[in-house]
Design a protein around this nucleic acid. Structure first.
Lengths: 350, 350
DNA sequence: GTTAGCACTCACCGCTTTCGAGTGCTAACC
DNA sequence: GGTTAGCACTCGAAAGCGGTGAGTGCTAAC
């Protein structure tokens, strides 16, 4: 049996209707609501064909049909390849970032909130997971007697800073001198390079070895943390609005998945090379999300790293709308991180 | 009518049983499970008295009794005044912080996670909301040509840093010189003081006024953000494990409350002067939490500021256990933020 | 190929029935 | 006077049951 144009049209009508209502759709509904010039009986025959082809499921014999994952796949593919990304809601995305926001993490949190409130689904935003950054400046800033703050600037922005202990008699000028030396020695290195070079520096710069040792521990840790990106989630409770999750057990397992950020990051990141990814139901590879879909898009920062934004909703998601919003949001974030206005938010902290 | 010792004992048994099972408890249960040497009929009489006194509620005439908020109040008060804070789980709290964690925010996030997994309830941790911090050092660090990172150290730790734009010909040494001047001029000021002083500095240091202007905007914003503390929430999905929240609508309103961090912070913070606060049901003052209880404790940082940790659970919470865990956790955090080991996490960022 | 007609299925709704946990009351008991 | 056994009563939850209607599949006619 073959898919012809009419079958496609009918399938599309079924999907549209199901996305809207969430209840199984029957043959009469299609023949009445959508102006196919066909009677319900004909639709019925076509539906039975479509079921045989694997595009429709029947919850039970006397209920309507429900689109299968395969059907959504077809639907989304044709949506994407048509290249028409409607921008229903362009302005609204743009409007939400007018406030001045500085910190990378704030931007990400904010984006997750906006995304979830715009789509009414659950939103996930990941900070860029960069290539390994290269050191550019190292600066020690006195904090109190006996301790100093390490600020490390890399080509990708500022790494999170931390306090180390130093000997009490060091003053600001000494620290500045050390900073200059360090910067000269380590410029261009990656963090792991720096770990290798440091032991020798410790030998050369006796007297200041305490500082360097503190730095050493910091570098090794910095390597680790730079691997786990920041994950912001918004609108987890939105999911409960959909009848798909009116079962408390299902809801709980979903929510607890949303709470384990690293696992979530892994899921959302996926094979994040493509500009858009749409994974439907089983394609997510996560049993807890058997009837969710995940749509992701990427944004990029000045350093050329890629971050991911994603929306998680029921399989009967409003795909075209979500894709459009993600598209806008991706551009918006890319613009922000490329710092086009004077208060420049392009910092990377991890 | 008066509370006598026997009534108290029976009430306590009822509360214990209800906390354990969550289903209304009947007279027979008490007379069998708990070795009062009394028959169910007697218990029945006592229960009817207790109801009259307002300690018990009856969902409907043919069901068992349920402790009222007043009963929990009595229960908790006697628990607290007995002064016995059992440490069921001392080790487990201690064990969870062995890893080296640097950043204030990481510690807080981590604490929320540990707290929720230990209690099986929802945990909220607030960063300290300080007195207004006083400037100690200001340092400009070159980031790239034309931009510099502002690092501001206060008596309470490091304020979040941000990038400002500078003229391209400034090099590291010039920035250092400016930093020194700024530090000298502004040391000891609060952020708002600094905003007042800056205009004059701008006039005096012509040539560098661009830098100072950037700083000005940053200071004014810093004031604002320093007022909204970091809020970490853990285990929101735990709440769904309790039959109290098997109603999806209830669950959703609870969850969406957990998502609006600033409102949540306000609720949890409460009148945060006391070491322990236990608010039961209506005492929380939030309709969404009519059948929740909130227990909070405080921790303090080196700067003398106080942060809050809290656990939100159903009114039939395991109070003594939660109090014990909060107590341990409070001490633990206080210790951490007073930096007793070499990798000092005592930073305040907001 | 399309459609009208019809028998059939089955979830859902509202109804009654049954069941049992739990109460309140009374009368007897110590 | 406090305690207890006994009993009638209440009422929610669960189970049983027929009616309803949306929806299907099939067949025969157009």
């Amino acid at each position: 049996m073959q898919m012809d144009e009419r079958k496609r049209r009918i399938l599309r009508a079924i999907i549209d209707d199901y996305i809207l209502t969430g209840i199984p759709v029957g043959s009469r509904t299609i023949s009445k609501k959508y102006e196919t010039g066909l009677s319900s009986a004909t639709i019925r025959n076509e539906m039975s064909d479509l079921e045989e082809l694997g595009f429709l499921d029947q919850p039970h014999v006397s209920a309507g049909r429900v689109p299968s994952a395969k059907a959504y796949r077809l639907y989304v593919d044709s949506l994407l390849q048509s290249g028409v990304i409607p921008d229903d809601s362009a302005e609204s995305v743009l409007g939400h970032f007018s406030g001045r926001i500085h910190q990378m993490e704030d931007v990400i949190d904010h984006a997750a909130r906006v995304l979830s409130s715009l789509t009414q689904y659950t939103a996930v935003v990941l900070s860029p997971n960069g290539l390994e950054p290269r050191l550019q400046t190292i600066q020690l800033v006195p904090v109190s007697i006996g301790s100093a703050l390490v600020v490390i600037v890399t080509d990708q922005g500022v790494i999170r800073d931390s306090v180390i202990r130093i000997s009490p008699e060091m003053d600001g000028d000494t620290l500045y001198a050390i900073s200059r030396t360090l910067t000269n020695e380590l410029k261009g290195c990656t963090l792991s390079d720096a770990c290798k070079v440091l032991p020798e520096l410790i030998r050369r710069m006796e007297g200041n070895d305490e500082v360097l040792r503190g730095l050493y521990g910091y570098f090794t840790e910095g390597q680790q943390t730079s691997r786990s990106p920041h994950v912001a989630v918004g609108g987890t409770s939105n999911m409960l609005s959909y009848p798909e999750y009116s079962d408390v057990d299902k809801a709980r397992s979903f929510l607890s998945l949303m709470e384990t950020r690293d696992k979530l990051a892994e899921i959302v990141r996926g094979n994040g090379e493509l500009a858009f990814t749409v994974r439907i139901g089983p394609e997510t590879g996560v049993p807890e999300m058997a009837d969710c879909s995940i749509i992701t898009a990427t944004y990029s920062t000045r350093g050329g790293q890629q971050g991911t934004i994603g929306v998680i909703g029921p399989t009967r998601m409003r795909y075209s709308r979500v894709i459009s919003i993600l598209n806008m949001m991706g551009h918006q974030l890319t613009d922000m991180f490329n710092g086009e206005d004077e208060n420049n938010p392009s910092r990377n902290q991890e």
